[in-house]
Amino acid sequence: MFRRIFAIARRDIKSGLRDNMILYILLAPLLIAGLLRAFIPGAGENLVSTAVVEGSPQTLVDMLEAHGSVEILADREAVLRRVRATDDVFGVMVDGEQIEIIADGQEQKGSDTMVRGILQVWQEPPSDLPLTISFSDIGWTLSPLARYGGNILLVFTSVFGGMIVMLNLVEEKQEKTLAAVNVAAISRLEYIIGKGLLGFVIPIIHAWLILLIMGYEGIQYAMVTLVILSIALISLIIGFAIGIYNDNAMSAVSSMKIGFLPIFGSMFGAIFLAEKWHPLLYWSPFYWAFRSVDAIILHEADWGIFCSTAR
């Protein structure tokens, strides 16, 4: 039985390797994880991006650089062009005692308040204030971007494995090669397991490697494997359901696109919604997968909670 199951899986690997498809699928999420790992430490360095004209006071440039990034441009027109360009950059023009902040107008809420505060302190450095401030920390170095970024990637690749298996089956259905299975010396169950095997194995390899690349410490890999297996199985079932109810690949693919909405919604809801709104997401397996991986990353997961969510 196992020989026949592995034969089916081996056939898919062989066909995938012929045009390097499996390599692309394997490497792409790892590449994204590598990019995240490389650039996450720089996040938070440029909370305030500004542009000033040449000849602006050096103390102003130093002050702005201490809080973010500064571009020095030729004249006011160049500053206006920079502010209007694609990203969120504020222009700063000093005219005697007055400082003009030039905003495009659609920047993130509150970012102009930050620029305003920096400039007020630069213009009038206070000497004797009633409150003093100092900083300390509890030594937790894992940023929210690293914590959630790796998790989103992990859940998404698990879904992807299931989707690929579903598409393989839809294709076989279209090409009528499924009929050949009926006359082959293999049962339907063996065929389905063989076809689905890669949809489980690839996400597990991905998950382990993504977690390693992201550099999370103290990860319980057995727990991760259980979550990935659960979510890959659910994705496979969703994939089958889409395949059954759609006669052609085009509507199957667009139905799959609709499926992305709850996947993204569950993960972003878990991040951005206040805890009291979370029951609205309890129906979604992707929400639980995301929460489970989050608990593993934060070292809060134990097998009791785990088995109940994986179920």
Binding site: L80, E100, D104, R116, L119
Partner: peptide, 8 residues
Amino acid sequence: PTVITRLD
């Protein structure tokens, strides 16, 4: 000392 000019 600051004034804001919004281009939009």
